[in-house]
Design a protein around this nucleic acid. Structure first.
Lengths: 258, 258
DNA sequence: CGAGTGCTTGAGCTACGTCAACCATAGTGG
DNA sequence: CCACTATGGTTGACGTAGCTCAAGCACTCG
């Protein structure tokens, strides 16, 4: 609902509502895009070594930026697939909902991640994408991206890498779910998150997790209670320190050794 | 199973060496490719609606076919990534090995599947691919495939769909591991396998699973004993009938209802 | 025939799920 | 400003699904 769209992302625009299902009805606000060439994330979104002309061509792919309110859907499962999205600010969870209504988190996305790739195959999004906090995304029509791929080799390679990494990411998660015990899963989750923050230049030992214990648990295939217990356990062992969503990793070697 | 395609496929080329398990050391036998246009699998590998010229271009991508002996690796984790493979005959498992030596199965591939996609991202294969029976694959150098993508739009789209489907497949597996109980996992596994056979024109109610209980269990995140128990349980309920690796699905609705 | 590999089944143990109570924080409405 | 409510987090008590360990059977292959 809200979403003040304003020239520039004013944070006062955040305006929470109450009610499990009936909140944040209007999700998404389009905005004008600032050119990619001026974007701090360019190194994550774009292949390097483009010519000026190519760079302009890439700029033109993003003809829209959207902001998504906390709790709102960027897209939902089964929505027709048209665009992929670069997450430019904020964090997002991907969820699949079972026929029985339970939902399963299949991914967390942070700044610099590309979303929506699972929709290409069947022309519909397979999972939904829900903002964990106010987000801004660049909207990239997939048709146009494919066209650009044909013309500009590095763009093609970049896309393929992004997709492949998504596959690899899921593989490694599969391994976690298949073979690790709860404590190890939580440890691996923290390390993975930290590594991604590090890669983006954020503090990787001290950060705030945007997701709840329930969401982490769903992602890791354990309950929220177990998740909480594992955080407590890690804290007792002086391996991490948590206070709500705030985490500090005290001994990342120990985490990795679990 | 075996492949009558005969004139060639010299099994004499098989030349064992010593490795972790000391069997099947030399894995792979190159062969000349038969043109794709004459391949029964063309509808799975290729986009439809290609012009004659385009079709020939695609044919030229496959300049090699290999056979892989049972138990042999088509590629191993960390091998440098050069090719993707179309599985033309047989079945293959994808495995990741932990540092502690345990291995986790992350996928089963049957005729018509594309393998190796997880290697694009980092230039090295993330998982290994082990033949569950004698296999033949078409070798497609990825560079050449990318070139063809740039030139022929339908090829590009086809590749993107394949990759996206791989992502989707893993997502759905994640859901199984995250939320289902052992019996449901086994049921979902059978249904999924049956559906894939059906799509390829094989009998989907009566088939033989090429993988062991242990491999199924690893894939599903349960032990081989539990896998076996679940098969027994399903048999008691007259939902499926198994005899070793041979399965008959008696009541696929019941399977889906679990 | 013996050895190797895979499958089944039982008995006991345990990691984790379930249920439930309670606390903290933050937004909300009088 | 202070209850009031909603949401998220922590912790305990208890039950159980699935793991571990172990034994025995069925095939296949040399």
């Amino acid at each position: 609902m809200q979403l003040v769209d304003a020239p520039s992302l004013p944070s006062f625009a955040f305006n929470p509502v109450a009610d499990a299902n009936h909140r944040f009805l209007t999700d998404v606000t389009p905005r004008r895009a600032t050119p990619c060439s001026q974007c701090a994330l360019a190194s994550l979104c774009h292949p390097a070594n483009l010519t000026l002309v190519e760079r302009e061509r890439v700029d033109s792919l993003v003809h829209e930026t959207r902001t998504v309110a906390r709790g709102a859907n960027l897209y939902r499962a089964n929505d027709p697939f048209h665009n992929v999205y670069m997450l430019r600010h904020g964090s997002i969870k991907s969820v699949i909902v079972h026929r029985d209504g339970r939902e399963q988190v299949t991914g967390f996305h942070i700044v610099g991640d590309m979303l929506g790739l699972d929709g290409i195959g069947r022309g519909r999004h397979l999972s939904g994408a829900v903002a964990l906090e106010r987000c801004t995304v660049c909207v990239i029509p997939f048709d146009a991206l494919e066209d650009a791929c044909s013309e500009i080799k590095p763009v093609q390679q970049h896309l393929h890498r992004m997709m492949s990494r998504e596959i690899a990411r899921k593989s490694s998660l599969l391994m976690q779910l298949g073979t690790m015990r709860a404590e190890q899963r939580v440890a691996a989750f923290l390390l993975h998150l930290a590594a991604r923050y590090a890669k983006r230049g954020y503090d990787s030992t001290d950060f705030t997790m945007r997701m709840t214990r329930g969401e982490i648990g769903s992602y890791l295939g354990i309950t929220l209670e177990t998740t909480s217990r594992m955080f407590s356990k890690l804290q007792q062992q002086k391996i991490v320190k948590t206070r709500g969503k705030q985490v500090r990793i005290l001994d990342s070697d120990a985490l990795a050794r679990l």
